[in-house]
């Protein structure tokens, strides 16, 4: 019988430098490096899994779906906010170590896990639900044009990559932040919703949309490709007009 030639899949070794913090033993975070063998199809999340499963079980990070839908694993990869599950290692510069840190501006609880409470609190404050008093027999109709107005902002998965990339949010934790404004935008420009005025009023605050300094870090960080800064600019315009 002819010999079967089994093609070998090329692998490479990459160094990950992870910013770690153990609240029980550390007073401040420290860097720790790990070498892992990876394949071209592996993502940063796979590398973190490999470290946790094979090298150091105490490494702590969040992840649920691992496919860019749940928004649990936003972290700072080589200085930029990314989802670990959507970042292929081969797309990064693997000749250098890969730096992985928790997202900025929220209190670190352990390793890559931050306390998301302030983030969710800002989200809740903008009333992220449909307010409609009419009682139609079937569904509420909407034209494709009206639907298109807020299409972009329906894509948010609340991963906090945008809010924690914002220099204003880093220094002023009271700022609503891009994610809350994006989700307000989703209802403000929804023709079926009746509470746009209230939401515009909430965001016309000292800590509301006017805190935005248009650095575009949020737009660049969004793993769903939402044009966050544009959405914020549209809310600013709506406040100036006094209506959506």
């Amino acid at each position: 019988m002819a010999e079967l030639s089994v093609p070998t899949i090329e692998s490479f070794t990459v160094t990950l430098i992870v910013r770690r913090f153990d609240p029980e033993n550390d007073t401040e975070p420290k860097w720790e490096d790990f070498d892992v063998e990876m394949y071209g199809t592996d993502r940063v999340l796979d590398a973190l899994h490999k470290i946790k499963w094979e090298q150091d079980g105490s490494l702590t990070f969040r992840r649920s779906c691992a496919h860019g839908v749940c928004g649990s694993d936003a972290m700072r990869i080589n200085g930029r906010n990314r989802l670990a599950c959507k970042t292929l290692i081969k797309d990064l510069d693997i000749s250098k170590p890969i730096y992985v840190e928790p997202i900025k501006g929220l209190p670190v609880e352990k390793d890559l896990i931050v306390d998301m409470t302030p983030f969710y609190k800002a989200y809740l404050e903008i009333n992220p639900f449909l307010v409609a008093t009419d009682k139609p027999k079937k569904e509420r109709l909407q034209s494709p044009e009206d639907r298109a107005r807020y299409d972009d902002t329906t894509k948010c998965i609340l991963c906090a990559a945008c809010t924690s990339s914002c220099p204003v949010f880093w220094t002023d934790g009271q700022y609503f932040g891009p994610a809350a404004i994006v989700n307000a935008h989703r209802f403000i420009f929804d023709s079926r919703d009746e509470n746009a005025e209230l939401r515009l009023d909430i965001l016309n605050d000292k800590e509301g949309v006017w805190r935005c300094r248009t650095t575009f870090n949020c737009t660049e960080a969004c793993p769903r490709g939402i044009e966050v800064t544009k959405a914020i600019a549209e809310v600013k315009q709506a406040i100036l007009r006094g209506r959506a």
Binding site: I17, R19, P29, K30, W31, D33, R76, N78, G79, R80, P97, Y99, E101, K104, S165, P167, R213, T214, T215, F216, N217, T219, E220, T229
Partner: peptide, 20 residues
């Protein structure tokens, strides 16, 4: 390997640097 004690600088693009 020299391990940086602080976190890395956020690598924003022109939007961030124009603001700075």
């Amino acid at each position: 390997m020299a391990i940086k004690p602080a976190g890395t600088l956020y690598r924003g693009k022109v939007g961030m640097w124009s603001w700075v």
